[in-house]
């Protein structure tokens, strides 16, 4: 394992120290328990939007803390959900008196830990609502399974709901909006290589020199199928078709297209893939009105990409365009 680290057991703590040093104008980082809050928070009278999850997906979630997006984020160990006391402390630090909305990616660990935290926060006197994000169409959903995973769509939910909270929407409104966005966002990813978790020391899975894995999760979970590498045109179609079929998206739909790098895929390939996705959508009469391209929901240094499609309407566009001022997403401010 070759990484720019000192010791696998201190990676998250040291990275948080670096993040605090890098963004003194935007963030405050608390250690033990670890959480990140916006430097100008808590904002009185504003719903606190709180998220979190395992580390290793940076900039998710800490890079999205700031005006117009998250009020707090809780980083767990690498690929491990945070513990309830972290979340509880983050909620307390972000609480502006208007309640807290927890945006939780749908993984058993995250759900259980945030659930416990929510109970503790209610005892502390904070009104709390939780919305699960489950946008990954690679996973079959059913009442009898853990359900779909939360992946790239998380960034879009956090941005849009963050904007709503910033403009003064109340807790019930933010919660309803979050459910609405979750209802119309879908994602799927593929990997060419796997990342290496520092405390594991070996890649999460091993692919042959010409293999790729379709439908991977963001924690190095292997995907649903392993196939030979194909031209980018085919790769993009492999991701886009299941997404389109699922919601379904159709002719005339207005969408936000998010082309995401899993971490190790360079921007030149990502733009190339984005161009293909735009072309395929245009061929289907789907109108791309907003786009996001970059490494925003990563899996350490994994090479690969995911596509996320969100059905838009005027309100969502307005909220997407609203000013945001965080380490990783910033415009209008």
């Amino acid at each position: 394992m070759k990484k720019i680290i000192n010791d696998p057991s201190t990676v998250v703590a040291e990275a948080l120290r670096g993040m605090a040093a890098a963004h003194p104008d935007l963030l405050r980082v608390h250690t033990d328990p670890a959480f990140i809050v916006r430097a100008d928070g808590p904002v009185a009278g504003k719903v606190a939007v709180v998220s979190g999850g395992g580390s290793g997906h940076e900039p998710l979630h800490g890079g999205f803390v700031g005006m117009g997006m998250l009020d707090a984020a809780c980083p767990g160990a690498v690929f491990t959900s945070p513990t309830p006391d972290q979340v509880q402390a983050a909620i307390a630090a972000a609480d502006g008196g208007a309640g807290a909305l927890l945006l939780v990616k749908n993984y058993t660990g995250d759900v259980l830990n945030f659930e416990t935290a929510a109970e503790l926060a209610v005892i502390d006197g904070t009104e709390v609502r939780t919305v699960l994000i489950d946008d990954d169409v690679a996973v079959q959903d059913s009442l009898y399974t853990a359900g779909r995973r939360g992946v790239g769509g998380t960034v879009l939910v956090e941005k849009i709901v963050g904007a709503a909270a910033e403009r003064g929407d109340d807790l019930a409104g933010c919660e309803a909006l979050a459910r609405r966005v979750v209802g119309q966002v879908r994602s799927m990813g593929l990997a060419l290589t796997a990342g290496t978790v520092p405390h594991v020391g070996e890649p999460s899975f091993t692919l042959g020199a010409d293999e790729m894995e379709i439908g991977i999760g963001i924690h190095g979970e292997p995907g649903r199928a392993r196939v030979s590498v194909e031209p980018a045109d085919v790769m993009v179609r492999r991701l886009l078709d299941p997404i389109l079929a699922d919601l379904p998206f159709g002719k005339g739909d207005r969408v936000l297209l998010f082309t995401n790098s899993m971490g190790g895929t360079p921007l030149i390939e990502l733009y190339l893939a984005h161009g293909i996705a735009e072309r395929l959508l245009a061929e289907r009469g789907i109108v791309v009105e907003r786009r996001l391209v970059g490494p925003y929901t990563t899996s350490l240094e994994m090479q690969g990409m995911s596509l996320t499609l969100l059905r838009l309407d005027d309100e969502l566009i307005e909220l997407w365009d609203a000013p945001v001022r965080t380490p990783a997403l910033r415009w209008g401010a």
Binding site: G76, P82, G109
Partner: peptide
């Protein structure tokens, strides 16, 4: 609960 995280911690 306060140190494990993941699914195993709460369970």
């Amino acid at each position: 609960i306060s140190t494990v995280g993941g699914a195993a911690g709460p369970l």
